[in-house]
């Protein structure tokens, strides 16, 4: 009966083991630190100092944004500052971009000739890096970042205004374009230039 005894002991050991190994640990709540769920565009009129603020928001974190309609005045010159936030975490992503300015660049695209200056449709696309755009800031290597830009409006017109934030670690250069690196932000606002 030796064999039988072995088997009994074994089965018992297995079942005891089976029952005792319950644990119910849950993964810790991780904060999605890299999510950008709030984008703020502040157009400041260079002459009057008037500020026009427009936002894009994703309160649910699902990725589907709601956009304010951009409305700025015709025949004026604006300084645009762009801010990126993780509102859910109360965190400013803009600061990180400033710290790593040599790895980031913002590119713009808009309805053709909607602005008096820059003319054209922006600098997004493989061969468009040197297309007209008025960057006001630069990184440690003398390359533009795009957190601050200048825009001059002409006649009243409506269209779209797209912002693309690229993460270009190791490959941001005088010739890098919006097709290099990874896209951190790609959003498109409706825009109206009004009298």
């Amino acid at each position: 009966m030796k064999n039988m005894k072995y088997l009994n002991v074994l089965l018992l050991a297995l079942l005891v083991g089976f029952a005792s190994c319950d644990d119910d640990d849950v993964p810790a709540a991780e904060n999605e630190e890299e999510v950008i769920d709030n984008i703020v565009l502040t157009f400041t009129d260079d002459d009057t100092g008037d500020e026009f603020v427009f936002e894009a928001n994703d309160p649910s974190g699902s990725g589907s944004f709601t956009y304010d309609d951009i409305e700025i005045k015709a025949n004026a010159t604006y300084t645009l500052s762009v801010e990126f936030n993780n509102a859910a975490e109360g965190e400013s992503i803009t600061e990180e971009i400033e710290e790593e300015a040599d790895e980031h660049m913002i590119f713009f695209e808009f309805t053709n000739n909607i602005f008096a200056n820059p003319q054209g449709n922006g600098n997004i696309g493989a061969g468009s890096r040197d297309d007209a755009l008025n960057y006001l800031d630069q990184d440690g290597n003398g390359q533009p970042t795009g957190l601050s830009t200048s825009w001059q409006t002409g006649d009243a017109v409506a269209g779209v205004f797209r912002i693309v934030l690229k993460h270009q670690p190791d490959n941001k250069s005088a010739t890098s374009t919006s097709t290099d690196g990874e896209t951190d932000v790609d959003v498109e606002f409706p825009i109206a230039i009004i009298r």
């Binding site: 083991g17 644990d23 640990d25 993964p27 991780e30 904060n31 999605e32 890299e34």
Partner: peptide, 16 residues
Amino acid sequence: WLYQDNNNVEGTNTIP
């Protein structure tokens, strides 16, 4: 018989 325990280690700063 097999028993397995798989855990996420805290601190990835992203949803598992």
